[in-house]
Measured scan of single mutants.
Amino acid sequence: DEETLERIAKELKEKGWTLIVNGKLITDAREALKWLLEEEERR
């Protein structure tokens, strides 16, 4: 759910983690959240 996604995005940002999505590096939590939401919609 959205709360979980926001928590994940926040944790990613705090830890300075990066996500690699389709070979693209995502360092911004907002971008990561946007991607996660798009993935949820596809299901």
Results as ranks from 00 to 15, higher is better:
Asp1Lys: 12
Asp1Trp: 15
Asp1Phe: 15
Asp1His: 12
Asp1Ser: 03
Asp1Tyr: 15
Asp1Ile: 15
Asp1Thr: 13
Asp1Gly: 07
Asp1Pro: 11
Glu2Met: 13
Glu2Asn: 09
Glu2Leu: 14
Glu2Ser: 09
Glu2Thr: 09
Glu2Ala: 14
Glu2Asp: 10
Glu2Pro: 14
Glu3Thr: 11
Glu3Val: 08
Glu3His: 10
Glu3Ala: 13
Glu3Leu: 15
Glu3Ser: 13
Glu3Arg: 10
Glu3Gln: 09
Glu3Tyr: 13
Glu3Asn: 12
Glu3Met: 13
Glu3Lys: 06
Thr4Val: 11
Thr4Pro: 03
Thr4Lys: 06
Thr4Gln: 09
Thr4Tyr: 12
Thr4Glu: 06
Thr4Gly: 04
Thr4Met: 14
Thr4Cys: 15
Leu5Gly: 01
Leu5Phe: 06
Leu5Val: 06
Leu5Cys: 15
Leu5Ile: 08
Leu5Asn: 02
Leu5Tyr: 07
Leu5Thr: 01
Leu5Trp: 13
Leu5Ala: 04
Leu5Gln: 02
Glu6Lys: 08
Glu6Cys: 15
Glu6Ser: 04
Glu6His: 06
Glu6Val: 08
Glu6Arg: 13
Glu6Leu: 12
Glu6Tyr: 07
Glu6Phe: 10
Glu6Trp: 08
Glu6Asn: 13
Glu6Gly: 06
Glu6Gln: 09
Glu6Met: 14
Glu6Asp: 12
Arg7His: 05
Arg7Tyr: 05
Arg7Ser: 03
Arg7Glu: 07
Arg7Met: 13
Arg7Ala: 13
Arg7Phe: 09
Arg7Ile: 08
Arg7Asn: 08
Ile8Gln: 02
Ile8Pro: 01
Ile8Met: 06
Ile8Glu: 01
Ile8Ser: 00
Ile8Arg: 05
Ala9Thr: 11
Ala9His: 11
Ala9Asn: 07
Ala9Leu: 15
Ala9Gln: 08
Ala9Pro: 01
Ala9Tyr: 14
Ala9Gly: 04
Ala9Glu: 12
Ala9Trp: 15
Lys10Ile: 08
Lys10Glu: 08
Lys10Ser: 11
Lys10His: 09
Lys10Pro: 00
Lys10Asn: 12
Lys10Thr: 07
Lys10Ala: 09
Lys10Trp: 10
Glu11Val: 11
Glu11Pro: 00
Glu11Ile: 15
Glu11Lys: 13
Glu11Ala: 13
Glu11Leu: 15
Glu11His: 08
Glu11Tyr: 15
Glu11Arg: 10
Glu11Trp: 15
Glu11Asp: 07
Glu11Ser: 06
Leu12Ser: 00
Leu12Phe: 09
Leu12Met: 08
Leu12Gly: 01
Leu12Thr: 01
Leu12Val: 01
Leu12Arg: 00
Leu12Pro: 00
Lys13His: 11
Lys13Trp: 13
Lys13Pro: 00
Lys13Asn: 12
Lys13Ala: 14
Lys13Gly: 09
Lys13Leu: 15
Lys13Ser: 12
Lys13Phe: 15
Glu14Ser: 05
Glu14Gln: 03
Glu14Cys: 09
Glu14Asp: 09
Glu14His: 03
Glu14Phe: 01
Glu14Ile: 03
Glu14Trp: 05
Glu14Met: 05
Glu14Pro: 00
Glu14Gly: 02
Glu14Val: 02
Lys15His: 10
Lys15Met: 11
Lys15Glu: 06
Lys15Trp: 14
Lys15Val: 03
Lys15Ser: 04
Lys15Pro: 02
Lys15Leu: 12
Lys15Thr: 03
Lys15Gln: 10
Gly16Lys: 09
Gly16Ala: 08
Gly16Arg: 04
Gly16Leu: 10
Gly16Met: 09
Gly16Phe: 12
Gly16Thr: 09
Trp17Pro: 01
Trp17Gln: 02
Trp17Gly: 11
Trp17Cys: 15
Trp17Ser: 01
Trp17Met: 02
Trp17Asn: 02
Trp17Val: 03
Trp17Glu: 01
Trp17Leu: 08
Trp17Thr: 01
Trp17Asp: 00
Trp17Arg: 01
Thr18Phe: 07
Thr18Asn: 06
Thr18Gln: 11
Thr18Pro: 06
Thr18Gly: 05
Leu19Arg: 00
Leu19Gly: 03
Leu19Ala: 04
Leu19Ser: 01
Leu19Asp: 01
Leu19Asn: 00
Leu19Val: 05
Leu19Ile: 11
Leu19Met: 05
Leu19Glu: 02
Leu19Lys: 00
Leu19Gln: 02
Leu19Thr: 04
Ile20Lys: 00
Ile20Val: 07
Ile20Ala: 03
Ile20Gly: 03
Ile20Asp: 04
Ile20Met: 05
Ile20Cys: 14
Ile20Pro: 01
Val21Gly: 07
Val21Phe: 06
Val21Ser: 05
Val21Glu: 03
Val21Asp: 04
Val21Cys: 14
Val21Trp: 08
Val21Gln: 03
Val21Pro: 02
Val21Met: 06
Val21Leu: 08
Val21Ile: 14
Val21His: 04
Val21Ala: 07
Val21Arg: 02
Asn22Arg: 03
Asn22His: 04
Asn22Cys: 14
Asn22Lys: 03
Asn22Asp: 11
Asn22Met: 10
Asn22Leu: 12
Asn22Pro: 04
Asn22Gln: 02
Gly23Thr: 01
Gly23Asn: 05
Gly23Pro: 01
Gly23Asp: 07
Gly23Met: 04
Gly23Val: 05
Gly23Glu: 04
Gly23Ala: 04
Gly23Ile: 09
Lys24Gln: 12
Lys24Glu: 10
Lys24Ala: 14
Lys24Cys: 14
Lys24Asp: 10
Lys24Pro: 04
Lys24Arg: 06
Lys24Trp: 13
Lys24Asn: 08
Lys24Phe: 13
Leu25Arg: 02
Leu25Ser: 03
Leu25Ile: 08
Leu25Glu: 11
Leu25Tyr: 10
Leu25Ala: 03
Leu25Asp: 03
Leu25Phe: 09
Leu25Cys: 05
Ile26Leu: 06
Ile26Arg: 00
Ile26Phe: 11
Ile26Val: 08
Ile26Ala: 03
Ile26Ser: 02
Ile26Trp: 12
Thr27Asn: 11
Thr27Arg: 08
Thr27Ser: 06
Thr27Ala: 08
Thr27Lys: 04
Thr27Glu: 10
Thr27Gln: 09
Thr27Gly: 02
Thr27His: 10
Asp28Ile: 07
Asp28Gln: 02
Asp28Thr: 06
Asp28Ala: 09
Asp28Pro: 03
Asp28Gly: 03
Asp28Tyr: 06
Asp28Leu: 10
Asp28Val: 06
Asp28Ser: 07
Ala29Glu: 06
Ala29Asn: 02
Ala29Asp: 02
Ala29Val: 14
Ala29Trp: 15
Ala29Lys: 02
Ala29Leu: 14
Ala29Gln: 04
Ala29Met: 14
Ala29His: 05
Ala29Tyr: 13
Ala29Phe: 13
Arg30Asn: 09
Arg30Lys: 10
Arg30Ser: 07
Arg30Pro: 04
Arg30Tyr: 14
Arg30His: 08
Arg30Gln: 13
Arg30Glu: 11
Arg30Ala: 12
Glu31Thr: 03
Glu31His: 02
Glu31Val: 08
Glu31Trp: 05
Glu31Gln: 07
Glu31Asp: 06
Glu31Gly: 03
Glu31Arg: 02
Glu31Ser: 04
Ala32Asp: 00
Ala32Met: 12
Ala32Phe: 14
Ala32Arg: 00
Ala32Leu: 14
Ala32Lys: 02
Ala32Cys: 13
Ala32His: 02
Leu33His: 01
Leu33Gln: 01
Leu33Lys: 00
Leu33Thr: 01
Leu33Trp: 12
Leu33Ser: 00
Leu33Ile: 10
Leu33Pro: 00
Lys34Cys: 15
Lys34Val: 07
Lys34Pro: 00
Lys34Thr: 05
Lys34Leu: 10
Lys34His: 04
Lys34Asn: 06
Lys34Phe: 09
Lys34Ala: 12
Trp35Leu: 05
Trp35Glu: 00
Trp35Ile: 09
Trp35Gly: 01
Trp35Asn: 01
Trp35Lys: 01
Trp35Met: 05
Trp35Ser: 03
Trp35Tyr: 10
Trp35His: 09
Leu36Ile: 08
Leu36Cys: 14
Leu36Gln: 01
Leu36Lys: 00
Leu36Thr: 00
Leu37Val: 06
Leu37Phe: 07
Leu37Gln: 07
Leu37Pro: 00
Leu37Lys: 09
Leu37Tyr: 06
Leu37Ser: 04
Leu37Asn: 04
Leu37Arg: 11
Leu37Thr: 03
Leu37Ala: 04
Glu38Cys: 03
Glu38Gln: 09
Glu38Leu: 10
Glu38Arg: 06
Glu38Lys: 06
Glu38Phe: 10
Glu38Asp: 07
Glu39Phe: 14
Glu39Asn: 10
Glu39Trp: 13
Glu39Leu: 12
Glu39Gln: 11
Glu39Lys: 08
Glu39Pro: 05
Glu39Arg: 05
Glu40Met: 14
Glu40Lys: 06
Glu40Thr: 10
Glu40Gly: 09
Glu40Leu: 14
Glu40Tyr: 14
Glu40Cys: 15
Glu40Asn: 13
Glu41Ala: 14
Glu41Ser: 12
Glu41Gln: 14
Glu41Ile: 10
Glu41Tyr: 12
Glu41Cys: 15
Arg42Ala: 07
Arg42Gln: 05
Arg42Tyr: 05
Arg42Val: 09
Arg42Leu: 07
Arg42Asp: 05
Arg42Met: 08
Arg42Thr: 08
Arg42His: 07
Arg42Cys: 11
Arg43Pro: 09
Arg43His: 09
Arg43Thr: 05
Arg43Glu: 08
Arg43Cys: 00
Arg43Tyr: 07
Arg43Gly: 10
Arg43Val: 07
